[in-house]
């Protein structure tokens, strides 16, 4: 699991790659929640490099969304492979997030 961050004007772009499972969820949580604790308010997460997500990973994204809600921030997710989108759909998580196809759509959703 690898997370890279880039600032695009005032939007934080996080690209998450590999697997977010029980083994890597803590690391992902520290990285993502850390950006919110450091003041990131508008976050777009690039899922195109993510190959696997389990409930431990879903929890991390939920935690991030909750944190942002408290701070008045926003988050959008984009570029999900079908295998990941299906897990979001099946678990009921899709309804909780702004999920779009492209980076442009994700950035627009945060404006």
């Amino acid at each position: 699991m690898k997370i890279t961050s880039t600032m695009m004007e005032d939007i934080l772009l996080l690209a998450i790659e590999g697997r977010v499972d029980t083994n890597t969820a803590t690391e992902a949580e520290e990285a993502i929640i850390g950006t919110i604790d450091n003041g990131a308010a508008r976050i777009a997460i690039d899922f195109s490099g993510l190959d696997y997500v389990s409930s431990a990973g879903l929890r991390v994204f939920l935690l991030a969304a909750k944190k942002l809600k408290k701070t008045g921030g926003q988050m959008s997710l984009f570029g999900m492979k079908p295998i990941i989108k299906e897990v979001f759909d099946m678990s009921g998580f899709s309804a909780l997030f702004t999920i779009v196809n492209t980076r442009d759509e994700a950035l627009t959703a945060l404006k």
Binding site: S55, L58, R59, L62, L63, V87, S91, L96
Partner: peptide
Amino acid sequence: DYFRTFRNGGLGIHI
């Protein structure tokens, strides 16, 4: 409720 209260656990077995 899970989203509102964010209680730990239950998601895995739900899946």
